[in-house]
């Protein structure tokens, strides 16, 4: 009786999840179907193209310096993710597990600054970068990532670290371990799910970041894929099929990467279960 109920519940859960999954798959389906449409069907509402135009993918890649932009984007993504995870976790640990004067106040300030509508900060920040001669280099896009990343990542990591049991850290302290040792040897290894989650968000953010590269880089050689996507949007018309083809190409690495990384989130959890 009990087992039957459990099985029924499992079936219901799967039905609900599958229903949502279908809804969530619509954008991908739409993107791919549009990417394969011939030109004359792009301005017509049609879910399935009359013929599949695979050539669109070749045209899309040729419309802008795809491989150069890809190289730049990969470079920025790798560097910034490493920087954010390294320094961001350090800072978040400081907020979560160390006791020091002004901790609460600084944390509140960190959160509060996120509320200022960003548009009014663009100009002051830009002027500052231009005064120190960093405009037209990658520095404005990279340096903040090596200084803790952003308020969002620090806040997220801090919330994860807060829920770590204090006992592990305390006992290590009593054993005379330095704080840095505790952080690198104990806290980081058991926080893999959190670190991977933050990496996923950082990678995605940098990969799709548009405004930063747009305003800081004055040489098209330095541009990234998200700027390249604009090649398909003209003033009075958009080449939807090519835009979607390019978008698909750009999204696939992210989808694959996410699929692989999230397996690690699960494994990180089992590892941690062992320590508990």
């Amino acid at each position: 009786m009990l087992r039957k109920g459990k099985q029924l519940r499992r079936v219901i859960v799967y039905i609900i999840l599958t229903g949502f999954a279908v809804i969530f798959l619509i954008p991908l389906f739409w993107m791919m179907s549009t990417s394969l449409k011939p030109d004359e069907e792009t301005m017509i509402i049609r879910w399935i193209p009359s013929r599949l135009e695979w050539q669109n993918y070749v045209r899309a890649v040729r419309a802008f310096p795809f491989f150069r932009y890809l190289r730049n984007t990969v470079f920025l993504t790798v560097v910034n993710t490493v920087g954010t995870v390294l320094t961001g976790s350090l800072v978040a640990y400081g907020f979560a597990k160390l006791r020091w004067k002004g901790r609460k106040a600084l944390f509140l300030v960190t959160i509060a600054t996120m509320f200022i509508p960003g548009q009014v900060l663009i100009i002051p920040v830009y002027i500052m970068y231009s005064k120190i001669g960093w405009v037209n280099t990658y520095l404005p896009l990279i340096v903040p990532c090596f200084l803790g990343g952003g308020a969002f990542t620090i806040f997220m990591l801090r919330q994860f670290f807060v829920s770590l049991p204090d006992e592990i850290i305390e006992s290590a302290r009593l054993d005379g371990a330095s704080e840095l040792t505790i952080f690198t040897r104990i806290v980081l290894p058991i926080s893999t799910p959190a670190l991977i989650t933050v990496s996923v968000f950082t990678i995605l953010f940098v990969w799709n970041d548009f405004f930063g590269p747009l305003i800081y880089l004055h040489k098209s050689d330095m541009w990234t894929l998200s700027i390249g996507l604009r090649a398909f949007q003209q003033r009075y018309s958009t080449q939807w099929n090519l835009l979607m083809a390019a978008s698909t190409i750009i999204s696939i690495p992210m989808i694959v990467l996410y699929f692989l990384l999230q397996e690690k989130i699960v494994r990180g959890f089992t590892l941690r279960g062992g320590i508990h």
Binding site: T87, L90, V91, Y93, G94, F95, L98, R99, W100, K101, R103, L106, T110, F146, L147, G148, I154, E179, F183
Partner: peptide, 9 residues
């Protein structure tokens, strides 16, 4: 120690 950890931020 605390300041050192959060100094980048």
């Amino acid at each position: 120690k605390g300041y050192l950890f959060v100094s980048p931020w």
